[in-house]
């Protein structure tokens, strides 16, 4: 691989890359722990996981600062410029996923206080799927592999489908048993949070495609539509 002539600059870009990966790792861990707290009805794990959000927030601020510094001092171009603009967006999505993991933990704490609800198959599948998407998008970023990032985007359709399935199942459960209402509402929120993680993973994947291919594929369908449609 060709390196930058300026080794300090090369080092700064590598450090930024490593920081993003570390942040992605922390966020992945938060999501998997929050899912485990839900499944195992473990409020202690949920509380411990919430505390991790602080370091994710700190990552966001530090990576932002590092990007600003590189923009100001190095005036990056081409692939380097795409990397910095991608980094600035990725940290925002990662930080949001961290927040959502906190939301999941809060629901886990609430749900642990109530009797267990019939397991919803779609929810379990969603939880697995979004965790795989997060892992895969981090790998695509590491390998600078646009095709792998595109595959992540396609998987989000499945998440959405499962989400709608989960909604239907929940509504039918809640209508059959009004005592399950409170738990049902928490569980609906969990479904929504998982679906949102899928959306942020999709954003991350779109950012990786831009980083690698220089192609902005966001809102591709909408932009392709004729005006007025």
């Amino acid at each position: 691989m060709v390196r930058h002539t300026d080794r300090e600059y090369e080092g700064e870009l590598r450090e930024l890359n490593d920081r993003i990966l570390k942040m992605a790792g922390r966020v992945e861990a938060m999501v998997s722990r929050s899912v485990r707290a839900l499944v195992e009805r473990d409020p202690d794990l949920a509380r411990a996981t919430i505390l991790l959000d602080e370091s994710v927030n700190a990552d966001e601020v530090e990576i932002d600062e590092q990007c600003q510094s590189i923009l100001a001092r190095r005036q990056p171009l081409a692939g380097d410029l795409r990397f910095i603009s991608c980094a600035l967006k990725m940290v925002t999505d990662l930080e949001r996923i961290g927040d959502i993991a906190v939301n999941l933990c809060e629901r886990a704490i609430e749900l642990a206080r109530e009797p267990a609800l019939t397991p919803i198959a779609e929810l379990g599948q969603m939880a697995l799927l979004v965790q795989e998407m997060l892992k895969e998008v981090a790998d695509a970023f590491t390998a600078r592999a646009a095709d792998r990032a595109r595959a992540v985007i396609r998987r989000d359709d499945m998440v959405d489908e499962l989400y709608h399935g989960a909604l239907r199942t929940m509504l039918s459960l809640m209508s059959q048993d009004p005592r399950a209402l409170q738990r049902g509402i928490h569980t609906l929120a969990v479904a929504k949070f998982l679906e949102r993680i899928g959306d942020h993973a999709t954003n991350l994947a779109e950012e990786v495609v831009y980083l690698v291919d220089g192609k902005d594929i966001r809102h591709a369908g909408k932009r392709a539509a004729p005006p007025g449609v």
Partner: peptide
């Protein structure tokens, strides 16, 4: 286009300062 996504690898290497 050239400064955000050049077509040629040699352009990319030059404008990002990867020439020896």
């Amino acid at each position: 286009r050239l400064f955000t996504h050049p077509r040629d690898r040699r352009t990319e290497d030059y404008i990002t300062g990867k020439f020896g």
